[in-house]
Design a protein around this nucleic acid. Structure first.
Length: 255
DNA sequence: ATGGTGGCGCGGCCA
């Protein structure tokens, strides 16, 4: 089973990229973030034509998440229990014998800002949600744009990023508390090229200079992590014309 | 270089 995550920064703009990439990579499941369109505008036909099924929780202008899957998507949830949030950042589904939680973690803007504290509160509630999900779903994947670089190895210039949003100690502690639920960062199961990143700022030629961060992740429960056969970042879509600032992360699971 | 680019939508917010 081949599973991927991609923050597309507007599905309307990126639809040709997403379809080209699906046709080339043929994943069983793709989790999308920042689709930035309301549910009635979701471009469903192009996915259905390709034999994919859909679930989405959209929002006009900002946020919005979706799951594209070869197998039927059931038991959908779009809310974090006991955490009221109008922002569409969460999509849970069961499919193909596993459970999937697609997350678009708040960016946090700037350490100490209102958005930063919203991010930390959001992560705390999501952590409790995942704890509950794991109790009922031993085969769980949590994936998406976490907006956290877990370690200095995930940062092009750790010195410049010390204490900055996406890298601050409270954010990294929140990420560690997710792993402490017994989730595994699939990317780090395997040896990886140095300077592997999933996001590059549009500004200052960030991609051309590989000034990136690894902030998009695929976390697997212990049962699933034991079946993980590969995990990689696909930089190719970031080289295409008018790209998203993120590129896909892919994990493959065996029997 | 307190800049820079991109999406949304048409001024300013968000990333």
């Amino acid at each position: 089973m081949k599973i991927a995550t991609w923050n597309v920064n507007s599905l309307r703009v990126r639809l040709p990229h997403v379809l080209t990439w699906l046709d080339a990579e043929q994943p069983d499941l793709l989790a999308l973030q920042e689709i930035k369109l309301p549910d009635p505008d979701f471009p469903a036909a192009e996915f259905l034509q390709r034999g994919y099924q859909l679930a989405f929780s959209g929002q006009k202008t900002y946020n919005g998440v979706a799951i594209v899957s070869r197998t039927p998507l059931t038991a959908l949830q779009t809310e974090i229990p006991a955490f009221s949030d109008p922002q569409r950042r969460v999509l849970f589904a069961e499919t193909g014998g596993i459970a999937v939680l697609n997350l678009y973690v708040p960016n946090g803007s700037e350490v100490g800002s209102e958005k930063y504290f919203y991010k930390l509160a959001w992560l705390k509630h999501v952590c409790e949600f995942i704890r509950t999900l794991l109790a009922g779903h031993p085969r769980l994947v949590v994936l998406g744009d976490f907006n956290i670089a877990p370690a200095d190895a995930d940062v092009h210039d750790p010195g410049a990023w010390v204490g900055q949003v996406l890298c601050s100690a409270p954010e990294r502690a929140a990420f560690a508390s997710l792993l402490a639920l017994d989730l595994v960062d699939c990317f780090r199961i395997f040896p990886q090229p140095a300077n592997s990143y999933s996001w590059w700022d549009y500004r200052a030629s960030g991609f051309q200079r590989n000034l990136g961060l690894r902030i998009d992740h695929i976390l697997a429960s212990m049962d699933l992590a034991a079946k993980c056969r590969a995990c990689r970042i696909d930089r190719v879509p970031r080289t295409w014309e008018r790209p998203s600032d993120h590129t896909p992360v892919i994990a493959e699971f065996g029997d």
